[in-house]
Design a protein around this nucleic acid. Structure first.
Length: 277
DNA sequence: CACCAGACCTGTCCGC
DNA sequence: TGCGGACAGGTCTGGT
């Protein structure tokens, strides 16, 4: 489900509800989604603590508590975090429920149950490998054209796989990779190392643009994604590539195509994104 | 190290 | 209406 724009939207919509709130009780309905520590310890680390702030790193959301515990979520494909006021219905597929002061709740729901939760002391955070190895994020100071040039250099892996690799760039997923490749005119099967000096700034800007616009639109809702208030995003109305196979390219009118790259559905325009450089 | 299939799960959609 | 298969926003592991 969620890539960086969706997680950032969740962070922003939850923050006003959760900042300064106390966790009174935690209901663990599906313990295997808790990865660290053991579920009873997980609960013990949270109960009675106050949420000081919400951070996001790549596709991870972190609630930092007043005892320095970091409550970390990775939503994988179908995880949802939703704030519900006292008396509101739970919704379906609730897995972990955080009861807050005053009877309001933060509900972790997840249809496919791939999502992961952790309650970590600061020194334990490196145990989360994906978090420890996270590459620079789009729109960050570290994500420069020079960084991208060096990271791409001589790589024989496909550009699509490269952009999905969270240790290279943190936060892109299948939707926004297809969008960035479309906007920069690069065919998804080309190798990372084949990106030319002329294409490099276009790709860099395209990555920043799709993430920026995704956030501005509150994320992309195709199926499960909802923000912290249960609302949908609108970026699905502004996509150029993802999910548009068979439809006319928004730039040249050619029929968009869909192939599989590295096992992932991949959408592109055969005219705007020629395979030959 | 690159690359792929398979695994983890449930739900939905499409064709027969 | 029912059934089987493909597919879904993500990562991790194990094999070649």
């Amino acid at each position: 489900m969620p890539e960086m724009p969706e997680l950032e939207t969740i962070r922003r919509t939850l923050e006003p509800h959760l900042k300064g709130r106390r966790i009174m009780q935690v209901e663990v309905l599906l313990s295997r989604q808790i990865k660290w520590p053991e579920p009873d310890q997980f609960v013990a680390r949270l109960v009675g603590c106050t949420i000081e702030r919400l951070e996001r790193k790549g596709k991870y959301l972190l609630l930092v508590l007043d005892n320095d515990i970091h409550l970390v979520f990775h939503l994988r494909m179908t995880g949802q975090l939703c704030y519900r006021e006292k008396g509101a219905a739970d919704g379906t597929h609730s897995r972990i429920i955080f009861n807050l002061d005053g009877g309001d709740r933060l509900i972790y729901g997840d249809v496919r149950t791939f999502g992961t939760l952790y309650a970590m002391k600061p020194e334990e955070l490196p145990k989360i490998q994906g978090l420890a190895e996270l590459g620079p994020e789009p729109l960050s100071e570290e994500f420069t054209i020079d960084y991208l040039r060096t990271a791409l250099a001589k790589k024989k892996t496909k550009i699509k796989g490269f952009l999905l690799d969270q240790s290279k760039i943190g936060g892109l997923g299948n939707i926004y990779v297809d969008e960035a490749l479309f906007l920069s005119g690069i065919h998804p099967l080309r190798t990372a190392g084949s990106v030319t000096e002329e294409e490099l700034p276009k790709l860099h800007e395209a990555i920043n643009r799709v993430i920026r616009e995704g956030i501005e639109d509150g994320g992309t809702t195709f199926r499960d994604y909802r923000n912290g208030d249960g609302g949908k995003g609108s970026h699905q109305e502004n996509l150029f590539a993802y999910g548009r196979d068979g439809e006319p390219c928004r730039v040249c009118g050619t029929a968009m195509e869909k192939i599989r790259v590295g096992g992932r559905g991949t959408h592109f325009c055969p005219k705007c994104q020629p395979f030959e450089v």
